[in-house]
Simulated scan of single mutants.
Amino acid sequence: MGMTRAQKARKYGENAGSAKAGSSPARAPRVRPASVHEMRPGELAAEPTKASSAGILVGVAFFVGAALWLYYHLLVLQGVSGNLAGGVTAPELMAGGFSQGHLADFARGLGADGRTEYEGVHATTGLFTPLLMCLGWLLFTGLNTPQRARKWVYWAVILVYAVVFLVGNTVLDAAVADPADASAVALASGLVIARWVLFALLVLIAVIVAVSVTRRKLDDFSEGKLPGQRPRA
């Protein structure tokens, strides 16, 4: 015969037998995390790790575009001048423009086969260079320029550079195919000059943005606002 509840209480204590067999301790209610839409202004803050990751990707795109530009102008076009055109400078490398006589010498140095390879350069490296470079510049200025009006001015210059670069390649192909066309040669020369002027503006924009970023970082550091810094009292 089993013991009664009173006997169990005397033998094992007051709380003995009060818990039901097989019962498990009550679990704490699970707290649902607050949704973004339920947060009040000021409670939602950007995560520093995500911002730093975006900055790294933008920096990589920027330097890849710059490296591709250097490769195109210092290696590819120099190779066109030396190997394909017999030492006649490629018109894209002449920042001050070129004459009809120079383009005629360049076309004569290329010959039929060289002209085909020259057009192939424009369809490959000459196509990807402005696109990737301008993409890196767009991302770099967009991430680091908080003023909307200034950002749009920077983007306009970058996009115009890409358009002038690509249109200039097409016009150059037509001018090299027919160097006797004075108007085509003059247009090609003007686009090359515009390309270099716009490139100088792109460099200036990159310097301005880099200086402003450095200045903001120094100001945040002095005020203790950088991630991981202890706020100053």
Rank of each mutant, 00 (worst) to 15 (best):
M1P: 03
M1A: 07
R5A: 11
R10Q: 12
Y12S: 01
G13P: 00
E14M: 08
A16M: 02
A16R: 01
S18M: 14
K20S: 13
K20V: 13
K20Q: 15
A21L: 15
A21Q: 14
S23W: 13
P25W: 11
P25M: 12
V31Q: 11
R32C: 08
P33R: 10
P33F: 06
P33A: 09
P41L: 08
E43A: 13
E47G: 09
P48L: 10
K50F: 15
A54H: 15
A54E: 15
A54L: 15
I56Y: 11
L57A: 15
V58Q: 04
V60S: 07
V60G: 04
A66S: 11
W69I: 09
L70G: 11
Q78N: 14
V80N: 01
G82A: 14
G82C: 12
L84C: 05
A85T: 03
G86C: 02
G86E: 01
G87S: 06
T89D: 09
M94Q: 10
M94I: 08
A95F: 06
G97F: 02
F98Y: 05
Q100N: 07
L103K: 00
A104I: 03
R108F: 06
L110Q: 01
L110R: 00
G111L: 05
A112P: 05
R115H: 15
E117G: 10
E119F: 11
A123E: 13
A123W: 09
T124H: 13
T125C: 12
T125Y: 12
G126A: 07
L127K: 05
L131K: 02
G136W: 00
L139I: 07
T141P: 02
T141M: 06
L143D: 03
N144A: 10
N144E: 07
P146V: 09
Q147V: 13
Q147T: 12
Q147M: 12
R148V: 14
W152R: 15
W155G: 04
A156M: 13
V157H: 02
Y161K: 02
Y161S: 04
L166N: 03
L166S: 05
L166G: 03
L172I: 08
D173I: 10
D178N: 13
D181I: 02
S189Q: 02
S189K: 00
G190Y: 04
L191T: 01
V192N: 02
I193P: 01
A194C: 07
V197M: 13
L198K: 02
A200C: 10
I205V: 08
I205T: 01
V207K: 02
I208G: 02
T214I: 11
K217D: 12
D219W: 12
E223I: 09
L226I: 10
G228K: 09
R230A: 15
